[in-house]
Design a protein around this nucleic acid. Structure first.
Lengths: 128, 128
DNA sequence: CAGTATCCGGCCGGATACTG
DNA sequence: CAGTATCCGGCCGGATACTG
């Protein structure tokens, strides 16, 4: 609630939210989280669910999420080895946060589109 | 609420939230928004408030926010020309969203730290 | 299948010099 | 002051080849 106390911390490079923000900005983090909301998935299943992701980027993203404890990786040994990925409770909570942001985006989409159109149309003329 | 409908859209490259997420991940967007929550500021004031930002990055970030209608740029002509930046109503709303994310980060910080420590300590050994 | 290992072009962001 | 214009190194992410 106190804007000042938030400001002091958030302006620093290592504040608690920094890593979270960069996680949110990551191209594949949100798609992966969403794909996992339906339950545990294997690497190959995820690749098919998420269009356009390369094998390297998918592995990299999964490691990142694993490191932050949002995703758990389980190896099931046997004649046909398999590897499952699933959301941890923390990952589920993160998914809810994601939904909040997404809803904000959807709600304000018209305003955002209008602003961009105005800017592109040359609102910058008078600024120049 | 319906996870499926969100999923369908968010997996695409051009969904409404995409741009917002990349905005949140931007290194300087949040610091600038926070610095502007105290009222209109000039370029040079912002540079001093936000440690470590270069002149180029500050200008670039302000243009980005201006383009999305989160920040308004006003030129006050006169013998001593000056340029003010301030949050639009949309920008203020965005700041509130930011606070929600920040609070999530603070609340879950202990869990995140624990997960990272466990990962670094070699939770990956058994995975290898 | 679920990765690791390389190569490699493109973009991002910092430093520096210059302008109305 | 509030920028624009360049240069330039480093990292990010895709493509490709190889492995247990």
């Amino acid at each position: 609630m106190n804007g000042d106390s938030v400001q002091v911390h958030v302006l620093r490079d290592d504040h608690p939210g920094r890593r979270l923000f960069s996680l949110l900005g990551n191209r594949w983090v949100c798609p992966v989280i969403l794909a996992l909301e339906g339950g545990p998935r294997r690497h190959s299943e995820l690749r098919m669910m998420i269009g356009g992701v390369s094998q390297k980027m998918l592995t990299q993203t999964l490691r990142l999420l694993e490191e932050d404890g949002l995703v758990a990786r389980t190896i099931i040994a046997g004649p046909r080895r398999r590897v499952d990925y699933e959301l941890t409770p923390l990952g589920v909570s993160f998914g809810e946060l994601h939904a909040v942001i997404y809803r904000w985006a959807v709600r304000h989409e018209p305003e955002l589109a209008r602003a961009r159109a105005a800017y592109a149309a040359g609102a910058r003329k008078e600024a120049k």
